[in-house]
């Protein structure tokens, strides 16, 4: 019998034995998920479109609170104007939760796609926070629709052209347009969140 097979047999045995010495990860205890959460997850009502977000930013909607859940280094490279950065992994820390549950504010999570922001949404919903939303499609969709909108075909309905017009204008607003070359950065202003005692939002839920 081939020597290679003896070698491979021993190697595979050693590798399998090695898995015993791989340190264990802490398993998260599975809590019972309330039926309500399940119901809410299936509802698309948590999504806001990039158009809605753009409109609110342009109109300086005071109730809008943009929360970027991507890692800090990505946030430093690019983000939406006036967005605060709460990386997904920090969402459970007290600093992360300071941005949630502020009265009369609508928190909008966004990330590159909407998977991470959806996760942030689920976590904060489980913690009992209200008025939180997810920007559908995330920043990728933002670039596609607001910054580089595609002109609809001539046969498209009138509303499609209206949306396109709005997006073109919004795109100019955010990029500085073609003529006025200001520094594009409506740089992230350091937002001072008023830290306010929340009515035990975080303690309930799970």
């Amino acid at each position: 019998m081939n020597k290679n097979y003896i070698f491979l047999t021993v190697l595979m045995l050693l590798l399998a034995l090695g898995t015993f010495f791989v340190p264990k990860k802490q398993l998260v205890s599975h809590e019972v998920k309330p039926e309500k959460l399940l119901l809410d997850i299936t509802q698309p009502s948590r999504y806001v479109t990039t158009d809605q977000v753009a409109k609110m930013i342009i109109e300086h909607d005071p109730t809008l609170e943009l929360i970027d859940v991507r890692p800090a280094d990505e946030y430093d490279k690019f983000s939406l104007p006036d967005a605060v950065n709460v990386p997904l992994k920090d969402i459970l820390t007290p600093e992360g939760q300071d941005n949630l549950g502020i009265e009369d504010m609508n928190a909008v999570f966004f990330s590159n796609d909407d998977i991470m922001s959806d996760q942030a949404w689920v976590i904060s919903t489980r913690l009992g926070y209200k008025n939180i939303y997810v920007m559908k499609g995330g920043l990728n969709c933002w670039i596609e629709t607001i910054i580089n909108p595609v002109e609809p075909p001539e046969t498209a309905p009138k509303t499609a052209f209206e949306t396109y017009q709005f997006r073109k204008a919004a795109g100019m607003y955010f990029t500085g347009g073609n003529s006025i070359k200001t520094d594009t950065g409506v740089k992230k202003a350091k937002i001072k969140v008023r830290r306010k005692k929340k009515e035990k939002a975080a303690s309930g839920g799970c």
Binding site: L13, T19, V22
Partner: peptide, 22 residues
């Protein structure tokens, strides 16, 4: 039962099966 036990158990069974089937 922890995952390494299954990994190791299957490996032993598989390797034994290789040699026996040969």
């Amino acid at each position: 039962i922890a995952a390494p036990w299954f990994a190791f158990g299957f490996t032993v069974i598989a390797l034994a099966a290789f040699w026996v089937s040969a």
